[in-house]
């Protein structure tokens, strides 16, 4: 068993583990972490496949940028929210398993039916231009130049699209300081709001602070974490 085999079997096991973990995790954050784990393992596989440049890009772009973007969005949507794993569409999971297993089996059967393949290796191709990166550059800015240019257009369009989608039109004019002052005075609560809980045993920002009489104050929480009092989790965590 040579080094390549060792690397392959270890990373292959890890990446499949990561993929399965992504699918079965209840919390989205956990899924994201599992995906990042798989991505890193795939990056290692790229290195062993003589694609050093792609391996680096994989780490930088996927685990670095894309997955961070995912986590960023998760922050907004709610890091803590956990999915119910109960299936709501009748028969979806059963049929999906059936299709998945048969599809995977057929792919594997198709791949392995031709028997063992010996890779030619990229030594010649990489050395032709001096190195892997130079070879890729030759291709990208040569034969695939048009695709590259079109990709740039795609990226610009995507950036613009994201901006348009995320943009919110201001419906009312921005409030002035005088208005804010007046509202605060009239709200019956001119002093600063109580701070949320400060004991760092928990995600402190969603634990309400205690009032002098010992009761939790919803007003101390940021808006996304506020509840009308019927939210069990919040109450439970407070009483803990």
């Amino acid at each position: 068993m040579n080094g390549e085999s060792v690397v392959f079997w270890v990373t292959a096991t890890f990446s499949v583990m990561g993929a399965v973990g992504m699918v079965v995790s209840r919390k989205a954050v956990h899924s994201a972490l599992w995906v990042a784990f798989t991505m890193i393992n795939i990056a290692i596989l790229y290195f062993s496949l003589e694609a050093a440049f792609l391996g680096t890009v994989q780490i930088v772009v996927y685990t670095g940028a894309v997955m961070m973007l995912f986590l960023f969005v998760l922050m907004i949507v709610g890091v803590d929210s956990a999915d119910s794993l109960l299936e709501t569409i009748k028969g979806q999971r059963l049929v999906a398993s059936l299709f998945g297993i048969s599809f995977g089996a057929m792919l594997i059967a198709g791949i392995t039916s031709s028997g063992a393949i010996n890779a030619r290796g990229l030594t010649v191709a990489n050395n032709f231009r001096g190195s892997n990166i130079k070879g890729l550059a030759e291709l990208i800015f040569g034969r695939y130049l048009l695709a590259f240019e079109v990709t740039s257009a795609l990226l610009i369009t995507a950036a613009l699209g994201a901006m348009v989608l995320a943009h919110r039109e201001r419906v009312h004019p921005r409030k002035t300081q005088a208005q804010l002052q007046r509202e605060r005075t009239l709200s019956g609560h001119p002093t600063p709001l109580p701070a949320p809980g400060v004991m760092a045993t928990n995600n402190a920002v969603n634990v309400p602070g205690l009032l002098p009489d010992g009761s939790p104050s919803q007003a101390s929480l940021p808006k996304p974490f506020q509840s009308n009092g019927d939210d069990e989790t919040t109450t439970k965590e407070v009483t803990k």
Binding site: V16, A19, S31, R93, A96, G100, F103, N118
Partner: peptide, 29 residues
């Protein structure tokens, strides 16, 4: 080493990903 192994791994990962698309409800996942 048999180069097919990489392809088989890719197939497995692809299938798991597809399965995830089919069974998870959280849009981010």
């Amino acid at each position: 080493m048999n180069a097919n192994n990489y392809l088989v791994l890719a197939a497995i990962l692809f299938t798991i990903g597809a399965f995830g698309v089919l069974v998870r409800r959280n849009a981010i996942i």
